[in-house]
Amino acid sequence: MADDDRLLIDRFLEMMAAERGASRNTLLAYRSDLDGARLIAGGLADASTAMLERLSPAWVTLSASTVARKVSALRAFYAFLEEEGLRADNPSAMLPRPITRRPLPKILSAADVDRLFGVIEARLAVDSPVPHDLRLSAFIELLYGSGLRATELVSLPRRALSGDRPFLILRGKGGQERLVPISDRARAAVAAWVSHIPPDSVWLFPSGKSHMSRIRLYQLVKALAGAAGIDPDRVSPHVLRHAFATHLLEGGADLRALQSMLGHADIGTTQIYTHVDSRRLVELVNSRHPLATMKAAR
């Protein structure tokens, strides 16, 4: 039966990739969640409601968001079995429905970002900057200047930025394509780094036979934070993506434009950034709304 479960999980994940465009990271998370549930429940394909009841006690120490993800994986898996005619019922209806709140993003101030770039500029202000510092400059310019996800950044093809084209086209989560503007600074930083890439590399940021890993990128960003006198726990590639979005919004960017640049399928995901902008919104109402210039009517 364990072999049957593995085969069905493989088929389910193939469907998720082909029909729903699930990313590699999503597929890995779903596989891990389903394999873990299979071991706890004693099987998945033929699991009864009673067998799935074993999961709740095993999840009691997990966060609500983690449990929600695991439940989502199981619900999707059993819906797939129903659609394929492999089960007549869906035992996942009894699984817990944890209430989760979208966490507010960690943010960096503009001064914090200036400190990060200050370290890089000091390292590059020598006669012959070392290649690793040129690469780090390209990383930070693209993370903060374009809001790329870590996976999108490290897996950029060598020719992703071509000529004077001020944008690149990315395929992000769910296989959705989006246009990402690239600043002159970022293009200059990438151009300085490109000459140090091995001629036979197909990646913009190669490492061995593939591209650099996300883990290594995280390490480099945290090391830079430490060098800038910022707590490394406050800084990550994703935090720089948040800073990109937050600072654009503070500068007057349209929420829909920001949604497009970030690659969010749901604008509700983008709206989380408005929490940092409430003071500015009040100021806008007080200074620019027509009522602000009208005398109070008697």
Rank of each mutant, 00 (worst) to 15 (best):
Pro232Asn: 11
Ser146Val: 03
Val71Ser: 04
Ala191Tyr: 03
Ile230Ala: 11
Asp33Ser: 07
Lys106Leu: 06
Leu81Cys: 01
Arg123Ser: 14
Leu136Asp: 13
Ala257Trp: 08
Val180Cys: 11
Leu240Tyr: 03
Ala22Phe: 07
Ala223Gln: 15
Leu62Ala: 11
Ser32Trp: 03
Glu177His: 13
Leu258Cys: 08
Ala50Glu: 15
Ala47Val: 11
Ser213Trp: 03
Ala150Arg: 08
Thr151His: 09
Asp266Arg: 13
Ala76Cys: 02
Ile120Pro: 09
Leu255Asp: 14
Leu156Ala: 04
Asp112Glu: 14
Val194Asn: 00
Glu19Asp: 12
Val239Phe: 05
Gly172Leu: 10
His275Trp: 11
Arg24Lys: 15
Leu142Asn: 02
Val130Ala: 14
Leu34Val: 06
Thr49Cys: 09
Ala125Asp: 15
Gln271Ser: 13
Ala111Ser: 10
Arg20Val: 06
Pro98Gln: 10
Asp127Phe: 01
Leu142Pro: 01
Pro166Ala: 09
Ile197Ala: 04
His289Met: 08
Leu248Pro: 05
Lys295Trp: 00
Ile140Met: 14
Gly251Cys: 11
Ser213Phe: 00
Ala223Arg: 10
Glu152Ala: 04
Asp5Pro: 01
Glu19Trp: 00
Val113His: 04
Leu204Tyr: 01
Ala189Arg: 07
Ile169Val: 15
Gln271Lys: 15
Ala37Met: 12
Gly43Asp: 12
Arg54Glu: 15
Glu84Trp: 00
Ile140Arg: 11
Ala47His: 10
Val276Cys: 14
Leu104Pro: 12
Phe167Cys: 11
Met261Asp: 10
Tyr78Ser: 02
Ser65His: 09
Ala68Trp: 06
Ala73Val: 13
Phe205Asp: 06
Pro129Trp: 10
His247Asn: 05
Val190Asp: 03
Asp35Lys: 07
Arg288Lys: 15
Ser236Val: 02
Phe80Glu: 12
Gly175Leu: 09
Leu8Gly: 03
Arg38Glu: 15
Gly263Tyr: 01
Asp233Cys: 01
Trp193Leu: 00
Gln219Pro: 00
Phe244Asp: 13
Leu8Asn: 08
Leu39Lys: 13
His211Cys: 06
Ile9Asp: 10
Pro157Met: 09
Asn90Cys: 05
Gly268Ala: 15
Ser260Tyr: 09
Leu142Ser: 05
Leu281His: 07
Arg288Val: 13
Ser23Tyr: 12
Ser195Thr: 03
Asp5Gln: 08
Pro290Arg: 07
Ser137Ile: 06
Thr100Ser: 07
Ser155Ala: 10
Ser162Phe: 01
His196Glu: 07
Leu224Met: 15
Leu156Lys: 05
Asp3Lys: 13
Arg185Gln: 14
Ile140Val: 14
Asp89Met: 04
Met94Gly: 11
Asp114Tyr: 03
Met1Val: 11
Ala228Met: 12
Ser183Val: 06
Arg101Val: 08
Ser236Gly: 11
Leu255Tyr: 12
Leu148Trp: 02
Arg87His: 03
Met51Trp: 07
Leu281Gln: 14
Ala58Ile: 05
Val60Met: 08
Arg279Phe: 01
Asp184Val: 06
Arg178Gly: 11
Val235His: 04
Ile272Gly: 14
Thr151Trp: 00
